[in-house]
Design a protein around this nucleic acid. Structure first.
Lengths: 195, 195
DNA sequence: TGCAGGCTACCTACTAGTTGGTAGGCAGTT
DNA sequence: AACTGCCTACCAACTAGTAGGTAGCCTGCA
């Protein structure tokens, strides 16, 4: 840790912004060079190829998710609350436009056109997220704090799909509140009323 | 009608295949020219600019949806069955790889990077689809043949989001059966058991 | 019947600009 | 002396789009 090397991080951050906006083919090294005030060739020094850059980005995205969820579970244990926080995280990101789409959800849409090394990273993210959600829902079903009508695995896949689809709708309508509007009843179906 | 002019249609069909695979920036006129055996310049004769081409594609995609749903409702009136057929249509398309993604769902993901003329077409598609689903679910709720826990509008948005998200998951996992696996319980929650 | 005018669909050949990527140099640090 | 981080200056390939020409077809007119 503590490696400053802020430039590589700057490049990754800029790439993330561009990918979230327009996908893998929606940006170039020149675009990144311009926003962070560096020359195109210098980016190749940090990431020899575009596939390298995006592969690293996706890898780090997954790592951040792994540590983020671990940290979250250290503070919160109730399955219902975990789902609410997960959905709330994205609702917040979309509303304040800080991270208005999941990088891997976007890359998944153009998966057949992605370099294979990037594609496996995207797939790994989906598997991790689905696995985490499955665990949470399984626990909730055992405790009786979540209402499930199919296996936890399938409930988790459906929940994840709704989250990703809601991102698409929010984008299509250009309305940041759409995401929350869709997720609220989805959560309510999983979480039995307590009042 | 009956204008053959097959070339323009060939171009649109090729463009659809490319967009479904890799998005707006995932193909070039040269790619289309090669697969349909024509020169690049000839494509410009039919569609002066790339934005023209994709705008036309999206417009026709919506028109086909409008007539398709109208035709469907002429044959089937039960809301539950309509939802089943809609989901089944995509399950089939994904399983036989004939149309493994919705063009507009894919374009929605890269909406901020799209030419505005294309973006409005994508938005129109989402509004139409959501409107149709809202009508179907509203009817089902009135008849009591569908179980809804939120307003028809919101149930429709959530259903549409799940369908689109399930396409993403099917693509990420590279498993054509994922879509059906997700949609089956989603439909079961909306359609009360009859047996 | 013949022929001009205009149209559609396509072509070759080109443009200006962008793409990802490379070679080699230079200053500062270790 | 070696490494890091950045630079200038390239490159071949590709991008969307244009200019200008040709072959064939249809329509109207003499």
């Amino acid at each position: 840790m503590s490696k400053p090397s802020t430039t590589a991080d700057d490049i990754l951050a800029a790439a993330r912004t561009f990918i979230v906006a327009g996908g893998y083919n929606g940006f170039s090294y020149a675009d990144i060079a311009e926003v962070i005030g560096i020359r195109k060739a210098s980016i190749h020094h940090h990431f020899p190829s575009k596939a390298d850059l995006v592969r690293t980005l996706v890898k780090r995205y997954l790592e951040d998710a792994v540590t983020g969820f671990a940290e979250l579970e250290r503070n919160v244990s109730e399955p219902a609350e975990l789902l609410r926080i997960y959905a709330g995280f994205w609702a917040q990101c979309i509303e304040d436009a800080s991270r208005p789409f999941c990088v891997c959800a976007l890359l998944a849409s153009e998966l057949p056109a992605l370099p294979p090394e990037v594609a496996v990273g995207v797939k790994a993210y989906f598997q991790f997220l689905s696995g985490w959600l499955t665990g949470v829902i399984e626990r909730g079903a055992e405790q009786g704090t979540l209402t499930v009508s199919a296996s936890p695995r399938i409930e988790a896949e459906a929940f994840m799909a709704t989250v990703h689809g809601a991102m698409l709708s929010a984008r299509a309508y250009g309305d940041v509140l759409t995401f929350g509007m869709i997720l609220t009843p989805t959560l309510r179906k999983l979480i039995p009323a307590t009042d």
